[in-house]
Design a protein around this nucleic acid. Structure first.
Lengths: 205, 205
DNA sequence: GATGAACTAAACTGGTCAGTCTATTGTACC
DNA sequence: GGTACAATAGACTGACCAGTTTAGTTCATC
């Protein structure tokens, strides 16, 4: 009847993923126990193991689906029609907003922590997040519209610098659980300073 | 007889720390077993437990001593006497060199991973590493010598931007275990681009 | 209301691990 | 050579945990 129900093996599939996401992001791979995941998911351990062959597979399923979600966080095309400085500011602002979210911080932490144990994980995270952002900004910076106002020889290097400027010390502090001012005002200021520095370097004389 | 021997409780203390560093940095906190640490250190478990009350204390001792070492990685004063662009380039280059070392990457990974479980750890790492760097660069950027050539209203914001530009995508890739070009040439280029962008923004008209 | 698949709780297995304990051996010093 | 501490190997305890199994329950569907 309900066509939108995915073709997964059973009704509790999404519950399992949700519980596992919760626990894995909070505790990391080693720190999370399967019993706890089952409890959090409101599901029996046997059910969980009917979906996934083992803990690793569940872990990878959760994190690659999170990376998938992350990569769908695309830049609105309408932003890019605006004047370059405004567009840059908007990009910086929304990028920063995303970076500072609990979601993004937790996924980052776990991916960094387990990128030794699960080599594919670091790659999957990089490709679905930082690389997407880099590609999109580089494409924008390489566009004809931008070329009229900015002089950019290497769009990837420029995009990299732009994104680095956005990140700022504030992000590092959040990642390390150090108290920090992450008010909208502060984030605004970082976005403005990012654009100011970026334009100073790349604006046409 | 040997005065340089530290006044720790026994002769094997340093061995314990060395073994623990090795294993913790490779495996993380949960992934490392005390038996393995003792084996790596060439020491019995009982000896290890005569120095440290439990695994957590050992972990913190290792990492805070690593952070200590990190913070002693100070900027040579002679660099700062050179002309500003040259000084900036040298700072960028040696900062990058340090950031990309196995040591620094491993410590960072473990601190990020465990900063939830050990809140003091994230703080200790931040204070002994990133914060030191920020303070030192900000002090330099706020100095009179620099003020003659650069116009900097907020030395901390400027220092933050400078350090962010150094980090670059390359660092993120290494942290996530993604293959990357980290040749001296590449690092040189990043340092030069960092200085170029920084000067474009802050050089006096 | 019968059928079969999905789900359940709970017990169980085999393994690992943190931390303790014991009995013994080295080592330094008087 | 006697005293006292440092260190050792290895056995042991109690806890936890991944993954399996069993015997029974829910639920959609016909």
């Amino acid at each position: 009847m309900n066509i939108s129900v995915p073709l997964k093996k059973g009704r509790k599939f999404d519950q399992v993923i949700a519980g596992a996401r919760e626990v894995f992001l909070r505790e990391g791979f080693e720190g999370a126990s399967v019993d706890q995941i089952a409890r959090d998911a409101g599901v029996s351990k046997a059910t969980l193991y009917s979906y996934f062959p083992d803990k690793q597979a569940l872990f990878m399923a959760v994190l690659t689906s999170q990376c998938q979600m992350q990569s769908e966080q695309a830049m609105g095309i309408e932003i890019l029609q605006r004047p370059v400085p405004e567009a840059l500011y908007s990009i910086a602002r929304s990028f920063l907003n995303f970076l500072m979210s609990d979601f993004s911080i937790q996924v980052f932490r776990v991916c960094v922590a387990e990128s030794n144990r699960f080599p594919e994980l670091g790659r999957a995270f990089y490709d679905s997040g930082p690389k997407q952002a880099l590609d999109q900004i580089a494409a924008y910076l390489g566009s004809e519209k931008v070329a009229r106002e900015l002089k950019i020889d290497d769009p990837y290097m420029a995009a990299d610098q732009f994104l680095q400027l956005c990140r700022a010390d504030m992000l590092l502090r959040r990642i390390l659980n150090v108290d920090t001012d992450d008010s909208p005002d502060k984030m605004d200021r970082i976005a403005r300073e990012t654009v100011a520095t970026f334009l100073a370097r790349y604006r046409r004389a």
